[in-house]
Amino acid sequence: MKRILVREEYCIGCKLCEINCVAAQVGSSNLIKIYRYVPELPEPNLIVEEDEYTTFAIQCRNCDDPMCLKACITGAMHRDSFTGAIRVDKERCVGCWMCVMACPIGVIKRTNDGKKAASKCELCVDRGTPACVENCPNEALVLIEVGE
């Protein structure tokens, strides 16, 4: 099972992770086209927290005992059996935002593409390597293998 390890000591606060997360959600790697021509860009699924010298990016931890999964009333929030990542089935999501309320670290967002649905980091399971990890210039975000 792979998870993103956040290494605060190497985060330089450049926010390239946020920028590339957005691009990954749109589904293109051409940043110029995305930022110029996509009218309503999604919010990044990770946030760079900053406090003076301390900066780090944080995204869904894919908790072992996920509050969002428990809070979900439709079963849209589910665990991907193959990767172990928590994913949102956008068809089933009704936009009750219980998951947003329940998440202890506040990394679940609403989509802004018109449809009322929750959006969160799904470890880019459809993409391969997470875009934030791939584009972090200082390896402050790394994908590591963790035990079951």
Partner: peptide, 13 residues
């Protein structure tokens, strides 16, 4: 300016 997406990475670093 065409390529600049105003991500402000350069400003931050």
């Amino acid at each position: 300016d065409y390529k600049c997406i105003r991500c402000l990475v350069c400003v931050r670093v």
